[in-house]
Nucleic acid binder design. Structure first.
Lengths: 243, 243
DNA sequence: ACCCTTGCGTTCATATTGGTCATGGAAGGT
DNA sequence: ACCTTCCATGACCAATATGAACGCAAGGGT
């Protein structure tokens, strides 16, 4: 099977270059081009399709200078462009997700994401494509059964598995991240311990990991007797993906 | 949450009546109308949307006298109609599935199907909608994390009893599901083991499958020494009214 | 200025559970 | 009656939060 042709749509040059580099690093994918805004993206897609060399997958940023990503998706469908779309966005609005799904968005990436997450999403998409191409070897083009379709859908929508350092669990990390994000100001390790019902050591270890990852920032808190306490504050996510 | 309004598009009167009856039998869904062909379906959708009472889900037969289902989906998107689509077809062509996904088809049913399959697909769609409405309690529109989106997508896929993974039996799964549903709070794998008289490995495997399918949610239980224990909670918010 | 108090950072060993592999036994087909 | 298939089980190893112990850096009293 030939490679899947990908178009990167991203207005920020740094992020666009990063995504393009990601694509070329991956096996089974080929970069068809990049576009900085919606109009040029639609023009590129139309040109490629007219040349008989259509783009099959679009990495689509939702926030573009001229058009919203959902508008681009809608115009693509109206123009008969059936490329699949992986949405990339920094706005974490859940109500957009449903509209995105309705316009044929197959994956949804929230910035900032790591390369592992990115690769995982694209790998699951490739698996989805492969399962649709030939679900069963003994059935030469006979047709698909319900379970074949189910399996293809399942591989497309399987949750990602991120690799964490030893000693940390995914669910605990999610709890801690969720708690810090809800707080308006900074939190200390003891406050996390009390709020989540975990031990001080555990809370501190996860906070330290998040500080190393850059998700939270760390500062000392003075003024109280005793050894100064570290306080952690949620960082606004940067616009670019972190590798 | 109010019911999900459904439009049935099917040219065969018998099948249309059957699907309509299915919808009305299901909890959480309301039949908005039926249409025998593509033109009337589009007109109905437009009228409902103009009346401020839009259809949220379309059961769309692929083979209609005037238009193909994919054409209807394409025109819907072009007209700005963002209703989700569950495709129903007798033609088992896999290459259509990809185009269907690109136009926002969330589920794919192959005729003939049983009522159980039908109900299962719609139940997973409803769970998807609920998770997008409020992914986590106590988070008033703060935003979604990557895992929230992943979980919503995961609930949309269909790993139901139609395609059980190897190593699981239907009867055991029913026992486990019944037990968890009866519990008010969360249960651990060990409690399921003790209550149902099965081994810990078996209990854990079924709980893990249910968590993966989105039927139950998984969380860590802290406070006790030793490795944290996973607790599983039935994932149904029917009476849990969120302020 | 010195020392004591205070509370957190840090480092282990420990207690449990999660995850995996190979085995046993039962059900159904031939 | 034999064989295949399939699911539950038991035992193993790996993983992860906890608790105690120790050290450290500030504040406050003398």
């Amino acid at each position: 099977m030939s490679d899947i042709r990908v178009l990167v749509v991203e207005d920020e040059p740094i992020a666009a270059a990063a995504h393009a580099a990601y694509i070329e690093r991956l096996d089974g994918f080929t970069l068809a081009g990049t576009a900085p805004d919606g109009q040029s993206a639609l023009r590129l897609l139309t040109d490629f399709a007219a040349a008989g060399n259509p783009v099959e997958l679009v990495l689509l940023d939702m926030n573009l200078p001229d058009l919203h990503g959902l508008d681009i998706a809608r115009r693509m469908r109206a123009a008969g462009l059936f490329a699949d779309i992986i949405a990339i966005t920094a706005v974490r609005e859940l109500n957009i997700v449903r509209s995105a799904v309705a316009t044929g968005v197959v994956q949804y990436l929230i910035k900032p994401f790591t390369y592992a997450t990115f690769a995982d999403k694209l790998a699951s998409y490739r698996l989805f494509r492969e399962q649709l191409a030939g679900p069963r070897t003994g059935k030469p083009g006979a047709g698909a059964s319900q379970s074949d379709v189910d399996q293809a859908f399942a591989s497309l929508r399987a949750p990602s598995e991120v690799s964490l350092p030893k000693g940390l669990s995914v669910s605990t990390l999610e709890s801690v991240k969720d708690f810090i994000e809800r707080q308006s100001g900074a939190v200390s390790a003891s406050e996390v311990m009390a709020a989540l019902g975990m031990s001080r050591v555990t809370a501190r270890r996860y906070l330290e990991y998040l500080a190393d990852a850059g998700t939270v920032s760390r500062a000392a808190r003075y003024g109280t007797p005793g050894r100064p306490e570290n306080e952690y504050r949620w960082n606004r996510p940067p616009a670019a993906a972190r590798p």
